[in-house]
């Protein structure tokens, strides 16, 4: 049987869509976490489907093992979005900042392909944070 790629994906479509749809839709509540991701980027606050996000994140880290550190990932996300400042200013601004950065990633071609899915770098890094969490 041929041509079944849509339904063979190792990252099931429902995972991917659920994970990505919630990346930018969930409010972020800042809280202190000196050991890893800044509290405003806590994955569980940004990703309601943590299982799917972690699967994506693990594949991203396999592609970019040099980023396998929560602090580094968070700094990358902060640098792209100014999320540190946004986090202090409230979840809505953080959501908008991430959304803007995601669009900029796509416009600039700063994307990664994970199991065939085209993801913005920002999305992949958020998922990687989840995988490391």
């Amino acid at each position: 049987m041929r041509d079944m790629q849509p339904f063979r994906s190792a990252v099931p479509r429902r995972w991917l869509l659920a994970a990505l749809a919630t990346v930018l839709a969930s409010p972020a509540v800042p809280w202190a976490d000196r050991r890893g991701a800044p509290r405003h980027l806590r994955p569980e606050r940004l990703l309601s489907d943590l299982g799917g996000a972690r699967a994506i994140g693990r594949q991203y880290l396999a592609l970019a093992p040099q980023e396998a550190a929560p602090g580094l990932l968070a700094r990358c996300l902060d640098a792209g979005t100014g999320a540190g400042a946004c986090g202090d200013a409230g979840p809505e601004r953080l959501r908008r900042a991430l959304d803007e950065q995601r669009r900029r990633d796509f416009a600039a071609g700063d994307t990664v392909v994970i199991d065939g899915w085209i993801l913005a770098r920002t999305e992949a890094r958020l998922c990687a944070l989840a995988a490391l969490g």
């Binding site: 790629q5 849509p6 479509r13 991917l16 869509l17 392909v113 199991d115 065939g116 899915w117 085209i118």
Partner: peptide
């Protein structure tokens, strides 16, 4: 508009 998956 949608999210794309590329064929292997």
């Amino acid at each position: 508009l949608g999210r794309m998956r590329l064929d292997d």
